[in-house]
Nucleic acid binder design. Structure first.
Lengths: 210, 210
DNA sequence: TGTACAATACCTCTTTTGGGGTAGAGACCA
DNA sequence: TGGTCTCTACCCCAAAAGAGGTATTGTACA
């Protein structure tokens, strides 16, 4: 019997998954929490084989929870659940050592397979994700084709723009000259090939740069 | 026994809810579809007391499905399910005659109560929603406090902005004068209380205006 | 029939963007 | 040690945005 801990802020979803499994499946949901911070305690007190964790959560999101677990030395396999096929999320989850990634529109069979695989420390990626991951890393292995990478400072500037700050306000807020901010903005717009800051923000949100 | 049809593109969620109920609850999930277009057929062929429908769906979303059902003369009560507490969605659902509205982070008890109420044609609104709806209509009854509503034309302008068009390009694209576009933009920024178009786009995406 | 609102259009004005250039300091890497 | 990259900073200038007006249509609703 594979003992699973669910970390998800949607009670209904968690309860649903819980009642979906019976002893025939060889899977048992032993506990459920909405708060990533509680995961270490639960791992200490309960016998758990796998963490089934949502990425989009309000208090501590799935990626941050993985980070927390890593920092505390926990090494339970984690299967990440999400609504979106966001490359940023996938990348974040992989970097933090997630064992697998499955979408919420998967079937029960998919989920069972994912749970069986990941609890045995075999990677599992939802078919829809697989291609995307492959394309992404294929893209990376080439000479940086496609979308240019933004530096941290540049992303910071974008976040400020999204908050309604103009160049002067950003300059004050980051303790740099307005000239510098304008240079950054110019470089960002060139890298992302956009002509207005409005489009820049849309693209940044779309690509989850911010 | 209340017979429920689930309309939701997330298999995992639908299957979960399905296995959550047994005869003791007096609730039975009789069918499940991912596609709103199939709902009329299912209502014709199956005995159904309540439609439990997700709002966020790819092919035909929940609101559009309600509209379809209305236009075809169906009058089954519908309980809308969603992830977000978006006022736009709530408003849309109410306008199309939804009987209730519940969030996906509700508990099983909440869902049971919602199903019992709405199947009996009593309104049900998730507590988190209730306040928001109340505030909204209270706001409307007063002198338009809070977030102002945007007209269709204004939303169109926002979508153009998000696509990187400037006022001149928008004017050409919509066959109106550049002056008009600038007036619209001014009105939009005032209504949404933002100071830059970058912030406008962020807000528009956040509030799902576009 | 009057009121309200959306959409249209024009005016003026200052501030900000967007696009072009150049360039030094510091980090990182081969 | 030289090359590359990031962050920094300045110059210029035309175009656009933002902020304030006013005003005419047409539609919708009470």
């Amino acid at each position: 019997m594979i003992k699973v801990l669910i970390v998800d802020d949607h009670d209904l979803f968690a309860e649903g998954v819980k009642s979906m499994f019976n002893s025939d499946d060889g899977i048992e949901i032993v506990s459920h929490t909405k708060n990533g911070n509680q995961v270490p305690d639960l791992l200490d007190t309960l016998e758990i084989d796998l963490i089934l964790m949502d990425i989009d959560m309000p208090i501590l999101d799935g990626i941050a929870t993985l980070e927390l677990l890593n920092s505390k030395g926990y090494e339970k396999p984690a299967l990440m659940l999400t609504m979106h096929q966001s490359m940023k999320q996938i990348k974040g989850a992989l970097e933090k050592g997630a064992q697998g990634y499955i979408l919420k529109d998967a079937s029960k069979e998919d989920l069972v397979q994912a749970i069986v695989n990941t609890s045995a420390r075999k990677n599992y990626f939802h078919p829809k994700i697989n291609d995307q991951v492959f394309d992404y890393f294929r893209g990376k292995s080439k000479t940086n084709t496609g979308l240019a990478e933004l530096s941290e400072r540049e992303k910071e500037i974008i976040r400020c723009l999204a908050d309604g700050m103009n160049s002067k306000a950003i300059a004050n807020s980051l303790f740099i000259s307005e000239h510098t901010v304008k240079t950054h903005r110019r470089n960002i717009m060139h890298k992302l090939q956009v002509k207005t800051s409005a489009e820049l923000i849309r693209l940044a949100i779309e690509k989850e740069i911010i």
